[in-house]
């Protein structure tokens, strides 16, 4: 099965030519549809850089990234937004909702980007908000929502584009443990029930139980191989294994998997 995300020999240097910082030193990673992968590691280890490159937001210094089978590292900056729009949904630590738009309008915005007609966009936005349990919050502004509700709106917005891949940056960091847990359950459902490839950057070890795999990054290298294996099927019957607490295995090659 072709991975939703395939990263090979990925490097990223910042401020090239001067006193540069090497953020990624040759990373190999596959993420399949229907699995939830955690990227963990200390601050500055390169996990957000890796997420940004996989999200086609940041360009790599070298290496290869294939999104839904398409090589994206060679694409120009003008073409990358279309890849993001087509294949990737984002969930951010700070929710990044538009404070002047209602919950429904925040979701509709994504659909507008995909040129869905206004009426249809409204209907689908309501449907998505229903699915994340916010059927009574269509017309609420972000300021009137709790942190968990905001993150649910953000998830609904990420799903509005019907992406194969959902990338989340610390989605539970701004939430209390109970709300964080409910958001993670939702993220897990995205992977397992809806067959999305979900990659989450997190410092929060409490979310490990939701992961199919957890990858540790240090100094731009994957230092710990994944816990578990990629699922063999997607959808409701997806087979997942949680190996939280399993012993560390030596890294492959230059920190790949």
């Amino acid at each position: 099965m072709q991975p939703a995300i395939a990263v090979r020999e990925l490097t990223k240097n910042y401020n090239e030519g001067t006193s540069g910082t090497v953020a990624l030193r040759g990373v190999d990673l596959d993420v399949h549809a229907g699995e939830l992968v955690l990227l963990m590691g200390p601050s500055g280890s390169g996990k957000t850089t890796l997420l940004s490159i996989m999200g086609c937001i940041l360009s790599a210094t070298s290496g290869s990234v294939r999104i839904a089978g398409k090589e994206v590292t060679c694409l120009s900056q003008k073409l990358l937004p279309a890849i993001r729009l087509e294949h990737i949904g984002f969930v951010f630590q700070g929710f990044n909702l538009f404070p002047t738009l209602t919950a429904s309008e925040n979701v509709e915005l994504m659909l507008d980007l995909k040129r869905v007609p206004k009426k249809e966009a409204k209907r689908r936005a309501h449907e998505l908000l229903d699915q994340v349990g916010l059927s009574d919050k269509y017309d609420s502004f972000p300021a009137d929502l709790s942190g968990g509700q905001k993150q649910r709106v953000a998830i609904a917005r990420a799903l509005a584009g019907d992406p194969e891949i959902v990338l989340a940056d610390e989605p539970t960091a701004a939430l209390d443990s109970h709300t964080g847990r409910s958001v993670m359950e939702m993220m897990r459902d995205l992977a397992h029930d809806r067959g999305r490839a979900v990659v989450i950057v997190t410092h929060d070890s409490r979310v490990l139980e939701f992961a199919d795999r957890s990858i540790r990054i240090e100094d731009g290298l994957i230092v710990q191989p994944p816990y578990g294996k990629p699922p063999v099927a997607v959808g409701a019957e997806v087979l997942t294994q949680h190996f939280v607490g399993a012993p560390s295995l030596p890294a492959f090659g230059r920190g790949g998997i």
Binding site: L85, N96, M110
Partner: peptide, 12 residues
């Protein structure tokens, strides 16, 4: 930040 989010979402 909102415009950045728009661009991240794939808005040209």
């Amino acid at each position: 930040r909102e415009f950045g989010t728009l661009k991240a979402m794939g808005a040209p």
